[in-house]
Design a protein around this nucleic acid. Structure first.
Lengths: 114, 114
DNA sequence: CTATTATATTCCTATATAAGAATATGTCAA
DNA sequence: TTGACATATTCTTATATAGGAATATAATAG
């Protein structure tokens, strides 16, 4: 069996570095295909192909504007990945418990001050 | 050009669903290769191969224990993914700004009270 | 040493890219 | 319609799996 399709889920779609670059770019606002290609220094057909993959996993949406097609990031599509990694936050966030403690403390102080 | 190697970075390594399952399993503690294979319902060689990929990107470590090889999760290796997705948190966390505001407020109050 | 158990590696095959090149399709202006 | 620009698709090729099967290597018990 070969590797899963890049369009099989978000995890596979973002495995490609250039697609992550596109996502980063689109986080600043919608962009045309040529803008994407220029920003990444790749050719237009490759940009179209990457955008197609991102569209198939619903990480971007498109709208026509004249001859152009403006792609917009659907950041919410990245939530599953964020959620999954959150499970392992305690591996590097050693102050997690202490911050939680701190928040509870100052919140109780707030109550007294109100 | 083909797809990047699964061992090229953490993003490619975790694209495979079974490798994510292994990571989930190892988050409960170290496991032998056969334990991993049994837990996922796959054969031992496939488990070994997946673990090799995870090891090459430093997501797991190994130690020998008799005839067994116990694999342990290095959760910190997932931080790059977590950090990247964090950039897009505001797409689904609409109360993010307000929480930030709140934290600043109570912290300034703390200073006054001390 | 030998048998047993545990793990890793090799070989094979079907499949899925990603990039380049060429081309098709779409949209608008005159 | 024709020309110009923007985008999408098709075709080809080199490469990288992931799984099964078979085998090699490692470690321990007796």
């Amino acid at each position: 069996m070969a590797r899963s399709a890049t369009t099989s889920d978000v995890f596979n779609a973002i495995a490609e570095a250039q697609r992550r670059q596109i996502i980063d770019l689109l986080s600043h606002g919608e962009r045309s295909v040529n803008d994407v290609a220029a920003a990444l220094g790749i050719r237009q057909p490759q940009a179209s192909k990457h955008l197609r993959v991102l569209k198939e996993v619903d990480l971007v949406s498109v709208r026509g504007s004249g001859q152009q097609r403006l792609y917009r990031l659907n950041g919410e599509g990245l939530k599953p990945i964020h959620d999954w990694t959150m499970t392992f936050e305690h591996f590097w966030e050693e102050s997690f418990d202490r911050l939680d403690e701190y928040l509870k403390q100052i919140q109780s102080k707030e109550k007294k001050n109100d």
